[in-house]
Simulated assay, not measured.
Amino acid sequence: MSTAETVDPYDITTRSNGLKRRRVTEKLVSVVALLSALFAVFILALVLGTVLARGINALDLDFFTKSAALFGEKGGIADALVGSAIIVFMAMLMAVPIAILVAIYIAEYAGPKAAAFFRVTLDVLNGVPAILVGIFIYGLLVVGHGQSAIYGAMALAILMIPMVARATQEVLELVPRHLREASLALGVPRWRTVYSIVLPTAIGGILTGVVIAVARVAGETAPLIFTSSIVTSHGVAFDVHEALPTLPVRIFTLSESASPDDQAAAWAAALVLIAFVLVMNVLAKTIAGRKRRSLEGN
């Protein structure tokens, strides 16, 4: 081959035949990704717009201060809000300590094989449909004893444990290894190192996982239908040994009604639930952002 026909591989002005094709492919993939993101935003906007348009007119002070309607009177969701708050709070008390301890074992104590086994177990448990958890609690506890808020909290706690445990485990593994090694080198026991060094460093991520899990289970309907849906008392109730009204079950009940007023109330209650989920997610992002800035020294 002559010198004139030799292509200098270091000549930046030389363009390969496939460069134009790669650029076109890159632009095409970028456009498809952008359109996919816009489509996801459109779906969210469509859902929010529909719920807002159909439920905003039913929102007033009485809607938040009155309980379920009786004898044709206009009712509200005060009892459902209180019942949901009690059940979700109890579920959080049950699930969070167990989930954090599971995550600590996986990240700090378990060997590679045991850690992999427990990760797979949590992933499988995280994928179990909520209705199956409700049926499980119903067959195990509700049958023969009756429904109660405690059983509803147990069902939600089962759903929360894998979510919080996996989030916490991932955060714990992001804590720099040299922090543990420095503490252990000073003769500090491992449990004290985890309690005083690892957990405070990862607290932002742990709280984020807890908040997201709370927002997730707050909208679950199927487990509560089996465990805390047959409410005998009217008005705001606090007896956790009895079934308490909840917001997801109230939405389901109102949506099945033939009354236009009940259906409007269902849309309004759904709007309240969406607003709660939105606030919890913003809170989680805020906590995570502040913790990240504190770790970076900003």
Rank of each mutant, 00 (worst) to 15 (best):
M1V: 11
S2P: 07
Y10F: 12
D11N: 12
S16E: 11
N17S: 08
N17L: 11
G18Q: 12
L28R: 15
V29S: 03
A33Q: 15
F42H: 08
L46E: 11
V47Q: 10
V51Q: 02
R54E: 10
G55M: 07
D60C: 10
L61M: 14
K66L: 14
S67M: 05
A69Y: 03
L70A: 12
F71E: 14
A78H: 11
A80D: 14
L81R: 03
L81T: 10
S84H: 05
M90V: 15
I106P: 00
P112G: 06
R119S: 06
V120E: 01
V120Q: 00
N126K: 03
N126W: 02
N126E: 04
G134Q: 04
V143W: 06
H145Q: 04
G152L: 07
L156N: 04
A157Y: 01
I158E: 03
P162N: 05
V164E: 03
R166L: 07
T168A: 13
Q169G: 02
Q169W: 02
E173R: 14
R177Y: 10
E181L: 13
A182L: 13
S183N: 07
L184S: 09
L186H: 14
G187C: 10
V188Q: 09
R192V: 14
A202E: 01
I206W: 04
V210G: 05
A215K: 07
A218I: 15
P223S: 00
S229G: 07
T232R: 10
T232Q: 11
V236H: 05
V236S: 01
T246H: 02
V249R: 00
V249I: 04
T253I: 09
L254G: 06
L254H: 08
S255W: 12
S259N: 14
D261Q: 15
A265T: 11
W267N: 07
W267A: 10
A269Y: 14
A270K: 09
L273N: 09
I274R: 02
A275P: 01
V277C: 10
L278S: 10
V279A: 12
V279H: 08
V282M: 09
V282G: 04
L283G: 07
K285E: 14
T286E: 03
A288P: 01
G289C: 04
R290C: 03
R292I: 04
L295A: 09
